[in-house]
């Protein structure tokens, strides 16, 4: 296992004003090589202006088996959305 070149996750900011978005993975021995490999692999067609690389093993993911208890309780709280409230039309845009 220690013989394997580590895996990294690559995040690219397409242009200033947008956030970094996950776009793929790659293998590199360290963070400098990972950034260069990300540049050489994922920005060959002008896809970005900034790169983040994160060791894949540093990412902790929520358990899909807990998806229901994690996320469904958030779906039915309609009062969190503006359309839940009735405002007379005369009041105008709010």
């Amino acid at each position: 296992m220690s013989n394997e070149t580590p895996l990294w996750e690559v995040f690219i900011r397409p242009r200033n004003g947008l956030s970094h978005k996950h776009c793929g993975s790659l293998h590199a021995a360290d963070e400098v090589l990972a950034l260069q490999a990300a540049r050489d692999t994922y920005t060959r067609r002008g896809e970005g202006v900034s790169i983040w690389v994160v060791p894949s093993k540093a990412i902790f993911a929520s358990d899909p088996d807990q998806a229901a208890e994690n996320f469904e309780p958030g779906v039915d709280k309609v009062y969190r959305h503006p359309t839940f409230y009735d405002i007379p039309e005369e009041v105008g845009h709010m």
Partner: peptide
């Protein structure tokens, strides 16, 4: 020597 360099060197 590794796939990532197969992308870097053609650049």
């Amino acid at each position: 020597p590794l796939l990532e360099e197969d992308l870097a060197m053609p650049n």
